Simulated assay, not measured.
Amino acid sequence: MKAAQLYGIDDIRVEDIAMPEILDPHQVRLKVDAVGICGSDLHNFRTGQWMSKLPMVPGHEMTATVIELGSDVQTLAIGDKVVADSRVWCGECPACQQQRYNHCQALAFVGEAFAGGMSEQVVLHEHQLLKVPSDLDADIRVLSEPLGVSLRVIKQLQATTGELVYVAGGGTIGGFAALMLQDIFKHPVQLSEPNQTRFDKLSALMNLSQQPQPFHFAIDATGIPSVINQLIAQIEPGGRIALVGLPHHNNSIDILSVVEKEITLVGCSVFDGEQHEAIAYLAPLKDKLKSLISEPLSLDDIPQTYAKLCQGGVDYLKAVIHPNQH
């Protein structure tokens, strides 16, 4: 079976690997229809920070078709279209006991704790799979997870109805959050994105505020400390900033201004039930989402695509791999 494997920092290879031949009772074998490259995949490629072992097949944003069921699987049938809930929780810590799985003390992810979706097939546990409408294209179904993360950010932000929201970063999460803020939640949006083509693509889909305006609510989807400090400097006193960007290096944040202006900084970690909720938004947003993703890419394209994404050399918001496309 063909797959991409991460061997270490800046080292990802496409090769043939073996698949488990026998399923555990609650496991499901899947043919991977599409898998997205996430910012956390790139973070692991650059730092190796969250990998439990190497080499490892990455890829947690995936949609697939059920092709084999373990003996005790009750909720799925052969041929079902599914997406992965990629969270891997311990089930024992206080957060898990309260079913706050995204706060699990040992939280890990598919593609880090065990093999992910950058392969022709993958085996996952039944409880990690959510059914999705079969009439949606694979490259729309695969967006349920980043859309769920974006929805989590919006919920954490708690913006007052109708208030302007400033979004820093027009990549996947920032762009999807901006789209949902305007189309679903009816907020005016101001967006900053240095990649002009990306900005233009988003501007074509939304009525973005063109002139700088005062703002009380903001989202940072960059993870860049200097951008966060700029938001802290510009936001109105008493404002609220949702942080979802992943920094590759930690530098100082202007805590003095946070204190003096009574700014609330709120972290946004993956999602709780938002991925399941986001599935309902895929169909109404599908035409706009389609315009923000890459042309279909194959497994062989992964090393080159990782390099381009790390260099910021792409104009789309989401790279989508079709592992069974040859």
Rank of each mutant, 00 (worst) to 15 (best):
C96F: 02
Q182F: 13
D254C: 03
L179F: 11
A18P: 00
L289G: 14
T160I: 06
A159Q: 03
Q311V: 02
S209Q: 15
L282M: 09
I184D: 14
S294W: 05
T197S: 10
L191P: 11
R141G: 07
S257E: 10
L181P: 11
I279E: 02
E61I: 10
T305L: 11
G79I: 14
V189D: 12
L202Y: 05
L124H: 01
K131F: 02
G59M: 02
Y306R: 07
Y316N: 08
G239M: 06
P284D: 14
A178I: 01
L107K: 04
H216F: 03
T161D: 12
Q156F: 09
E236C: 07
M19K: 04
I232E: 09
L69F: 07
N251V: 14
L23V: 02
A177D: 08
V57Q: 10
G175M: 01
V259A: 05
R240M: 01
S86C: 09
Q158R: 08
Q5W: 04
S119D: 03
V314F: 06
C90N: 05
L292I: 06
V88E: 00
Q49F: 13
N102M: 02
E120Y: 04
T160P: 00
A283F: 01
L147H: 09
I12Q: 13
V142T: 14
V122E: 00
L76I: 03
L136H: 12
H326A: 09
R87A: 10
E112V: 00
D220K: 12
S144Y: 01
H249N: 13
K155A: 08
D272L: 04
S71H: 05
C38Q: 10
V82H: 13
R240I: 00
L292P: 00
Y281M: 09
T65R: 13
I78Q: 08
L289S: 09
S52D: 09
V320Y: 01
P225R: 13
V165Y: 11
G171Y: 09
R46G: 07
T161W: 03
D139R: 04
M1H: 10
L246G: 14
L285A: 12
D200C: 01
Q190I: 14
S226K: 08
V189A: 13
V244N: 14
K131D: 04
I173R: 13
I228T: 15
I253K: 14
A18S: 14
I302N: 11
S86V: 14
P296H: 11
P133G: 10
I224W: 04
V83P: 07
A138F: 06
D33W: 00
Q210N: 06
C268S: 15
T172L: 06
V83L: 03
E277S: 04
V244G: 12
L191S: 11
E260S: 02
G116Q: 00
D220M: 13
G313Y: 03
I224L: 15
D85G: 04
L130H: 12
K201V: 09
V88H: 00
C268Y: 09
Q213M: 08
L54A: 12
Q325E: 08
T264L: 10
R87W: 00
A3W: 07
R141V: 03
L42I: 12
L317M: 09
